[in-house]
Design a protein around this nucleic acid. Structure first.
Lengths: 173, 173
DNA sequence: TATTGTTATACTCTATAACTATA
DNA sequence: TATAGTTATAGAGTATAACAATA
């Protein structure tokens, strides 16, 4: 009997369906995320935040300022500095001056960075497609639609502090 | 435009539905988990792993051995020792000798621990029910069923190392 | 020898706050 | 003053490995 069963089995009345759903969703997410992190480490010697930062830059060919990266990755500025430093030292991204504001600059993928990201993104897609291989296209669409409502509800339920909250990496809508 | 939109919007062909679903699911999970962690901290001055440990013990009135806790929480033993130490020092759990094996003992909720867990679990349920309030009962059931297939697929896809992988807390089936 | 549990250590990921340089 | 970015530090949460006591 696994956790879900232990927590639900004997006292169904105390654990409404929403709670069962949450535990299952948490398990699924963690199973997939753990594998993605491990695979990024093993195959590309990188981490999820680094992959996330490069994914943001790949979407913005002209580059992004640090505060834009911070907002989109939903982490505070100090972290972005650290990740960027690593990627710069490996030649995957570069810092370019912003005309008219000498405090800021754009962070941009280098050609090497674009090449590496393309390879990672291709693999990443395979991992994810595999993870949901048990579902039909229609079922995937249904899940996506229902979770869209959950997401909207979670984002509006609380005014939510202006600052970044834990990494919502890669999601934008 | 949030992360999901940025990552999908301009190149739909490169991002199959499974990838869109994964990003959305990750966002939902993180939104909810972040709120649960913050609320546990604010209202009960505790953490998710501590809540998890107590939830395991609440399911096992006779108590659990450290290695059973480690396996169920899916974290390594050293972590369980640390969390247990904290809870013991606060009088929420106790270590009891196991007859016939002087190396081991059972960890059990104290009456104070049971009382506090009951209060936390009640609140926790409210937070979770709220998080999924946008869905009907039928839709919740649909999500639960579809994610059950995803979970089964993820658990069987890889033989999975015998050791614990990141916390799958609370889920059992 | 194998198992139970503890200790020590390190790593990832994140936040906060003080700081520098520029606006 | 306010903003862009950096640095330093702290904390949660986890893993690995060496260890002691018992089986």
């Amino acid at each position: 009997m696994d956790k879900e069963a232990r927590l639900q089995g004997t006292t169904p009345a105390e654990h409404p369906e929403a709670l069962r759903l949450w535990l299952r969703m948490l398990t699924c997410t963690q199973l997939i995320e753990t594998r993605v992190r491990a695979a990024l480490r093993e195959q590309f010697d990188t981490t999820l935040p680094r992959f996330d930062l490069m994914a943001q830059l790949e979407r913005a060919p002209e580059g992004l300022k640090m505060n834009e990266l911070s907002r989109r990755m939903m982490v505070t500025g100090g972290n972005v500095t650290g990740i960027t430093d690593q990627l710069v030292s490996e030649g995957l991204v570069q810092r370019l001056d912003v005309a008219g504001d000498r405090r800021a600059y754009r962070v941009q993928l280098t050609p090497a960075g674009r090449a590496q990201f393309a390879a990672m993104a291709q693999q990443h897609e395979v991992w994810i497609v595999d993870a949901f291989a048990a579902l039909s296209e229609k079922e995937v669409a249904t899940l996506h639609r229902l979770l869209g409502r959950v997401k909207a509800n979670s984002q509006t339920a609380v005014p939510s502090p202006p600052g970044p909250s834990p990494h919502l990496s890669l999601e934008t809508s």
